[in-house]
């Protein structure tokens, strides 16, 4: 980054990077076959965003630019892995990234809608989500503590997410009231 940039410009870039952390992480996670390297990759994306900040034109969409950077990083990482283990191929990755870029661009609205939808869940379902996501327990741990088989936990989590997904879409299609 051009160090002659004003303090205000630098602050703006840091602010933009900060505001996009959770969506970048989610975006990367949705493109990876396995989740373990998401954090490291995100940090690498952050560095690029900071160092190449002069390529970003203020006034244009930061997400459009940042998601391109992230997509490129994921692609590189996949190619690196390619020899040792299965990864999505370039073509499929591009398809997936197009969808993800679109979905994650509205993440704030989706988060809002999700907050609303979570409140409508029955307590038992909410408890299961808490165990899995809030307390970050593995599926196996959730299965042990609820005395249910692993397969059934996965299935139930899938159904809850599917219900939340429907609810979110419904929320988003309603006219905005502010």
């Amino acid at each position: 980054m051009d160090l002659s940039k004003s303090e205000g410009q630098q602050a703006e870039i840091v602010q933009l990077i900060a505001q996009h952390q959770s969506r970048l992480r989610g975006f990367i996670r949705s493109l990876m076959v396995r989740a373990e390297d998401v954090d490291d990759l995100l940090q690498e994306v952050n560095i690029v965003l900071w160092e190449k900040a002069d390529q970003f034109e203020p006034g244009t969409s930061f997400w459009a630019w940042a998601s391109q950077v992230a997509r490129f990083k994921v692609l590189n990482q996949m190619r690196k892995y390619g020899r040792e283990r299965f990864v999505f191929d370039d073509e499929f990755l591009a398809e997936l990234a197009d969808v993800a870029e679109d979905r994650f661009s509205e993440i704030d609205q989706r988060r809002c809608a999700l907050d609303h939808c979570l409140r409508q869940l029955p307590t038992t379902q909410r408890r299961l989500l808490d165990l899995r996501y809030f307390e970050s327990r593995s599926i196996a741990e959730v299965a042990t503590s609820t005395e249910r088989p692993v397969g059934s936990i996965k299935q139930t989590l899938y159904r809850i997410r599917a219900a939340l997904r429907d609810c979110i879409e419904k929320q988003l299609s309603q006219p905005q009231s502010i």
């Binding site: 959770s22 989610g26 949705s30 988060r111 996501y133």
Partner: peptide, 23 residues
């Protein structure tokens, strides 16, 4: 696929996800 992943991300984030702290 993306939506399920997105919802899972948002739910993980609720748990005090460290993304901002990390940054």
């Amino acid at each position: 696929l993306v939506d399920h992943s997105l919802i899972a991300s948002l739910l993980f984030e609720e748990s005090g996800d460290e993304s901002v702290g990390d940054l």
